[in-house]
Design a protein around this nucleic acid. Structure first.
Lengths: 226, 226
DNA sequence: CACCATTGGATAGCGCAACTCTCCAACCAA
DNA sequence: TTGGTTGGAGAGTTGCGCTATCCAATGGTG
C-alpha cells in the first residue's frame, strides 16, 4: 500500500484505487462498469493513467444503488443513465425518458387468453381513474405493459382483481406520487430533479414495499393478535 | 403431501404432459420444480407413472407467478411454500412465516457508517408511527432489515430521507395494507387466505408500483404538461 | 402376446449475467 | 534504475434457471 501523491481526499484527482476505497467497490468491478459505459471515463492524464473526481464517485454510488438495491440489469441501468445525462432534453421529457427505460416486469404473454381480459381490465381502470395520458399511450408504455402482465397473472391464478379494489389502491398510489413530486420540486437543479426521480423510482419502491409489509404485520397483529 | 389430500377440485388425474399443456410450462421445467420440491410429487400409480390433479396445476401456477412475476429465487420460493403448506400453524403465524421468508433486498452493510444512522432513522419513524410490533421485533425481521438497507442507500446517496416524508408515505402504505387485509378476509379458507397474502405480497407489489409510476406520469403531465 | 412410443427419474449440460482474474506495458515516486 | 502501481482488455468463474439426453419400466394397440 504505497502512499499516493496526495495524502488528503482531494476534490480532484483520484486514482481508480482511491475511487474503489471510497466507494467500497472493487477496482475490478469499477473497470467492468467503465467498460460497460455506466461510468464516464476518467480524465486521461497520460497513456496509462486517469483521474476521477467526486462526480465519478457520486455516479458510482448511483450505479450501485440502481443495480444492488433497485435490481436493475446492467444494460437497463446504462440506458437509464444515458437519459439522466442527456442535457439536450427538457426536464419533463428527460424525466419521462429515464423512467421509461426503467425495469419492467416480463411483458404480457400475448398467447395467453387472460392477457386480453387483463388489457380490458386495465383500460376500464384507467378510464375510471380518469388517467387519460396513460390511457392514450396505452400499450406503448412499458409501465402499462407490466401492469397488464401483473393483472393477467392474478387473473390466471384465479384472483378477481376487481376494478373497485384496484381503483382504491390506485388512488392511494396517486397520493404517494403527489408526495413524490412535491418532494422532487424541493430540489433545485434540473439534473438533481431527474436523479431524484430515478432514485425515487428505484430506491423508494423497495422502501415503500417494506413499509407496506410492516404495515400489514401491524394491522394483522391489531386484528388477530400475535 | 398436504396438497394431494386437501385441495381436490377435479378428481380427474393428469399425466405430467397434460399438466404441462394446461399450464404452458414445459415438462422439463415441471420435473425441475418437482426435484426442487416446489410442487408435491404426483400420486404414484406405478413404478414409472404418476398422476397429478387440479391442486398440482394450481400450485404450479402459483410457483410460476412467484418466480416469474415476483422474481423469487427458486430456493426462496420453496421456503415460502413450505410455510404456506404448514397446516400446523395458526393463520396469523402461518401468514407471518410465509411473508417472513419473502424476498428482501440486500442486508444492510454493517461496515458502512450510514447504516447506524439509518437504523436510528427507522426506529424514530416506527416510534412516530406507533408501530410497536415492528419496533419490538426490530432487526430480527427481514423486512425491517431491508428497510434499514434502503434508507442507508438513500442517505449514502445524499437524500435526506426525512422522517416527516417517510411518515406520510408510511401512512399511505398503511391504508393500502388495511385494504389488503379487508380483501383477504373475503376469502373463506385459511389456506386460501394465506395463499392470498403471499400473492398479495409478490404479485400486487409490482402492480402497485406500476400504478404508482403511472400516477407519477399523470401528475407530472398535470403539472408541467406533456 | 409383442411392439414401441410414452412416462418418470436422474444426470449432465447450456446460456446468460455479473462479476473477477490474469496479464502486460506504461507510469511514477524513491 | 527500479519496483510497486496503474489502466486496459480479454478470458475465466460463479450461480442460477432451466433444458437436453439417457434409461428402464410401462401400457395402449393390434
Amino acid at each position: 500500500m504505497a502512499l499516493s501523491k496526495t495524502g488528503r481526499k482531494g476534490r480532484h484527482g483520484m486514482r481508480l484505487s482511491e475511487l474503489s476505497e471510497r466507494s467500497g467497490v472493487s477496482t475490478a468491478t469499477i473497470k467492468y462498469y467503465l467498460r460497460e459505459g455506466l461510468i464516464p471515463a476518467g480524465l486521461r492524464v497520460s497513456a496509462t493513467q486517469a483521474e476521477y473526481d467526486e462526480g465519478h464517485l457520486r455516479r458510482l454510488r448511483l450505479v450501485r444503488a440502481l443495480i444492488q438495491v433497485g435490481r436493475l440489469p446492467v444494460a437497463t441501468a446504462r440506458e437509464v443513465l444515458t437519459h439522466v445525462d442527456d442535457e439536450s432534453l427538457g426536464r419533463t421529457i428527460r424525466l419521462g425518458a429515464a423512467l421509461w427505460a426503467l425495469p419492467h416486469g416480463p411483458s404480457p404473454d400475448e398467447d395467453a387468453p387472460e392477457t386480453a381480459e387483463a388489457r380490458a381490465h386495465v383500460a376500464a381502470l384507467l378510464t375510471e381513474l380518469g388517467w387519460s395520458t396513460a390511457l392514450e399511450l396505452g400499450d406503448l408504455s412499458p409501465v402499462h405493459r407490466s401492469l397488464v402482465a401483473s393483472v393477467a397473472s392474478l387473473v390466471r391464478l384465479g384472483y378477481p382483481c376487481d376494478i373497485g379494489y384496484l381503483t382504491r389502491q390506485a388512488r392511494i398510489m396517486e397520493q404517494a406520487a403527489v408526495h413524490d413530486l412535491d418532494e422532487m420540486e424541493t430540489y433545485g437543479s434540473e439534473a438533481e430533479q431527474v436523479e431524484k426521480a430515478v432514485a425515487s423510482a428505484v430506491l423508494y419502491e423497495p422502501l415503500l414495499m417494506s413499509l407496506r409489509r410492516l404495515a400489514q404485520s401491524e394491522e394483522s397483529a391489531r386484528r388477530y393478535g400475535l
